[in-house]
Write a protein that binds this DNA or RNA. Sequence first.
DNA 1: CTCATTTTTGAACGTTGTTCATTTTTAACT
DNA 2: AGTTAAAAATGAACAACGTTCAAAAATGAG
Lengths: 198, 198
Amino acid sequence: MVGKRQTKKEDLKARLIVACTELIREQGLKNLRARDIAERAGAALGGLYTVFDDLDGLILHVNSGTLKQLENTLNTAISPSAAIEETFLSLSLAYLRFALAERNLWSALFEHRMPEGVSVPEWHLAEHAFLIGLIAAPLARHMPDASRQDVAIRARTFFAAVHGVISLSLEGRFVGITPEVLEREITVLAGILARSRS
Amino acid sequence: MVGKRQTKKEDLKARLIVACTELIREQGLKNLRARDIAERAGAALGGLYTVFDDLDGLILHVNSGTLKQLENTLNTAISPSAAIEETFLSLSLAYLRFALAERNLWSALFEHRMPEGVSVPEWHLAEHAFLIGLIAAPLARHMPDASRQDVAIRARTFFAAVHGVISLSLEGRFVGITPEVLEREITVLAGILARSRS
DNA sequence: CTCATTTTTGAACGTTGTTCATTTTTAACT
DNA sequence: AGTTAAAAATGAACAACGTTCAAAAATGAG
């Protein structure tokens, strides 16, 4: 049997992650406060620092959960046998809709920065890999002479391109465009990339 | 003749912008401190708030200067009569090199967020327009049936795509790639976009 | 039940951005 | 030049933040 000590600690950790996720979802990463998290989790302020090194550690776990959500969403949006045009289109639109539906959680994935000198831990970097894999699979069939690594790099490029369009739109930089136009542009870009030959 | 009052105020404003620019360039937006800016500008802490509403106002002016620098760099990178492939390639590579050379100032352009509820002032949003214009000019020749606005939207999409690739790389998300590979990927993407027909 | 150990707590600390009463500077007017 | 009201500069003080830590509460082995 697991001791009451460890049980309570894991419970606190889970409550903190839930509270932090909700607060980021509701108010965005920039308005996140350690005191708000502790209060919503029903814990003392100091408790947060008995589970995580600092706020960044907690945010990393929230982002980890968001990535898992995103992975599920994207996985159910595609069928492995579909043509590359259809797969790119489905992935891009599913990504766009996820970003729109969970704007703050999605933004936190890319807005969050580690403090000076500290880099993102390896276990969290690795969690991004599925995004590349999703694109690399159909792309490999279009790059039969390329190495596995080159396909992965190209997949990363294509993801970053679509991500950039969505990101710059939702950030409200430049003059804003309507969601309908954004969806159209994403559709066009996904088509261009799917049909491309370098 | 202009009064000593106004002269000194403008001088203070200029010194603050220079100091803030240098500090962002050296240490990045995240490590920017109001006290450091005032000290480097040779001013009292409170002086900052007699010229700008808050730190965000000052950062906006720094970003304004960075955009002007970027505009000069990109303008000298292209020739108006060149083919679209060459123009897209030159612009993309010049943009990449600017981002690499002034990484922190360039990052600040996109990392900076206004406080809750406050939106970026119109005069600063308008300063981004040249980026779209640079791409829209050659693109219009490839979209003869499209309206001026549709061309601008597509130009924005293409910029965002290239920007996304550079942005995600320099942020160090996912597994990093070397500058050479990044340059290759940017070259490939610029070619794909230049040759695209939707 | 006892009590040494672990966990939880929230007051306190150092560091932020911002404000404001005070001092200093400016320039219009005798 | 001297006077003085207005403007500007100053830096101590304030509120709010992330983080720490001495003290209190909870735990579980004997």
